[in-house]
Design a binder for these strands. Sequence first.
DNA 1: CTCGTAACTAACCAACTAGATAGTTAAAAG
DNA 2: CTTTTAACTATCTAGTTGGTTAGTTACGAG
Lengths: 216, 216
Amino acid sequence: MGPIRSTRDAERTRAALLLAGRSVFAERGYEGARTQEIADGAGVNKAMINYYFGGKQGLFSAVLLDGLSDAISAVAPLRRDEDPPMQRLSTFIDTMASFFRQSPDVVLILVREQMGGARHIESEVRRRFFDFFRTTREILGEGLASGRIRDVDAHSTHLILVGSLTYYLLTEPARVTYASHGDAPGAAPSWETHVRNVRELFLRGLAAERLHKEER
Amino acid sequence: MGPIRSTRDAERTRAALLLAGRSVFAERGYEGARTQEIADGAGVNKAMINYYFGGKQGLFSAVLLDGLSDAISAVAPLRRDEDPPMQRLSTFIDTMASFFRQSPDVVLILVREQMGGARHIESEVRRRFFDFFRTTREILGEGLASGRIRDVDAHSTHLILVGSLTYYLLTEPARVTYASHGDAPGAAPSWETHVRNVRELFLRGLAAERLHKEER
DNA sequence: CTCGTAACTAACCAACTAGATAGTTAAAAG
DNA sequence: CTTTTAACTATCTAGTTGGTTAGTTACGAG
């Protein structure tokens, strides 16, 4: 397995800072994040942030780029599917859900970025982002053509889908706080329950009304 | 019309600070907001924040309470309503939507706070916040009892509803940026279109399946 | 072995920020 | 007019933060 803890390892230090930074930036936001807290979280001297990333801003950009590469590879396999629309929709939701669950901190950072006008998101990343939406639009278009999905605004529907999943994650830190203070409004649903609920709402809510009971 | 600018006016100063605070907190977050910027925005001396609100934290709570009071008073009459569940649900969505559109900054502040564990939100604000969820749960419970709404997880469904509306608002700054860069993925739907889409998805997606076509 | 350098540390600092405070003034009360 | 006080300002301060820097140590090349 090699040495568990060597005294010096540039790559390990870099990775530790990226990981700690992802967590702290997601929780506190850029301004709220303290470089000392990130360094402590990484088990590294604060000066290493400057040494490797040129400062707080540089680390933030690096965290964002690093986190987004996961997202991009997660979305890649989505568009080759040729299942019927409802099946594709279901698969799409599950794929998104699994990425969201896998990298919640990246989602939180992206939410903050979008609230701030997405100033630090570069165009390549942006392009990939739009692929999410294009997939939704494609599925909905197919479903409309084949009479399985009713006529809805694709952009709006996409926002509902992503928003439903995102909102669960962004409220999670608050739920933890509420629970620890004992004034929670009831137990929260699990992620799996939530995703199932989202999927069910979409499948039922988007289905075209049957004119007769002609479907086989 | 009275004097447009009197030299001293406690109420006007308070209101100006609340308004400026709402805007700056929404844009920068609690940590990112500078009391000096808020004071400047209100055209008032920085010390007035301490004088009237006891400090940054006090102003923040006041901004939140002020912003939520509109929402609460708007939602309050919904609970004695005796319309059928589906009608109540529809009204609830419209009421939330109109508050969201009217006070988007309050929504953004709440999103930021929840991502950070709601550490700046005091219990009074928290209590009021839960009223939203209680209303959803009440409507769904009624609907289930009367057989009009299928059995769904109330908490999860509430998150979907609020998340759908919230996500539209929090992505708005990003859409502005995308549009100005010319690489938008198509025109965004209007708020009204989005709300109509949300309402329709919920009404269809939550409806209990009719066992026969016995409904009158 | 020894030397150069990348990796790392501890201490420091300039800049900034929320809040305090002492003093000033408008305006209401009598 | 005088008094009182709420409303307001200019200035200061204690504490924090991101970043710098001089110095130290591990490590690989030759």
